[in-house]
Design a binder for these strands. Structure first.
Lengths: 155, 155
DNA sequence: CGCATACAGGACTAAAATGGTCCCCAATGA
DNA sequence: TCATTGGGGACCATTTTAGTCCTGTATGCG
């Protein structure tokens, strides 16, 4: 499936909700009601987003959560990384290769490239895009493909 | 993490192994030894790949597994789908939207577009690419980003 | 025919990740 | 001082994942 976890999905929804009204802080229960998700779970998600530096929090009455920076500077990668850790498609996609199969698998290097391409793609999608009601249009799909294929076809 | 499951990873490794010697059939134990993974697990993976139509099998002595079509016509998406089901980043990324939050989440449409872009990217990576010892080069990363951003910045 | 080889299918178990809840503490502001 | 609101983490139930094993079936060969 290559699926995001539910919490990541929640995080995106909640972030989008905040992004639509960035001025004042949003309390956790308010957000939970707005997106129709269980309060404790939303709260948990918010805490993770704060720790990742995507949100800032204000305690006390009239407190709540706000975006740490403009929505256009928060990417899908950021949100995913906040909940699930850095985007990496395989164990050996991140630096500390604790995969003892290197040498036998002969696929690691290429998976890492694919992983990088996916990450780059997700870096290009910002919270501003996700939050806008009009769907983002991906007018051309093939260029992505051709970029990926370009050099490999020669190799 | 947006990570592939281990089985998917195994599948890719095993497929690559077969792709490097496409002529004769490969028995499950032989493959397991070659890639240094437990026999039963490799066997299970192979069965899934057969059911997905990516491999064909021959029973009896001298039997084993072969690619169902040329490595250049088997994509990363195919392999992932064979083990994990169709690539989709969120529940609502596939057609039968059993997500009752539509309307509140306001993110679904855009996630679907992102999902599609990732899938397209993975469609562009073939087993031939993965199997080759020389790493595939992704010379330009930014174009992927700019394609994604292009229309959305206008929207 | 009989037997060894090799895949097919699925049941089953153990371990890990996930999703979700709850509790107590700390900070803020009226 | 007290109500409000987030911070941190423990905790549990469920699901998913990984891995094993067993029984059946097809093929090829002597």
């Amino acid at each position: 499936m290559l699926k995001l976890s539910k919490l990541t999905d929640y995080a995106a929804v909640v972030m989008a909700q905040i992004a639509r009204h960035p001025e004042h802080p949003h309390a956790a229960p308010e957000l939970a009601d707005a997106v129709m998700l269980p309060h404790p779970t939303v709260s948990k998600t918010l805490k993770m987003l704060v720790r990742a530096g995507l949100l800032t929090s204000l305690r006390g009455s009239q407190g709540g959560y706000r975006l740490a920076r403009p929505a256009s500077q928060i990417t899908a990668s950021d949100i995913i990384a906040a909940i699930e850790g850095p985007v990496a498609m395989t164990e050996c996609s991140h630096a500390d290769g604790d995969c003892e199969l290197v040498g036998n698998c002969g696929v690691a290097d290429n998976w890492q490239r694919v992983s990088l391409a996916v990450r780059t793609l997700l870096d290009g999608v910002t919270l501003a895009h996700l939050a806008q009601s009009a769907p983002i249009k991906l007018p051309v799909q093939l260029p992505i493909q051709s970029v990926t294929l370009a050099a490999s076809a020669e190799g």
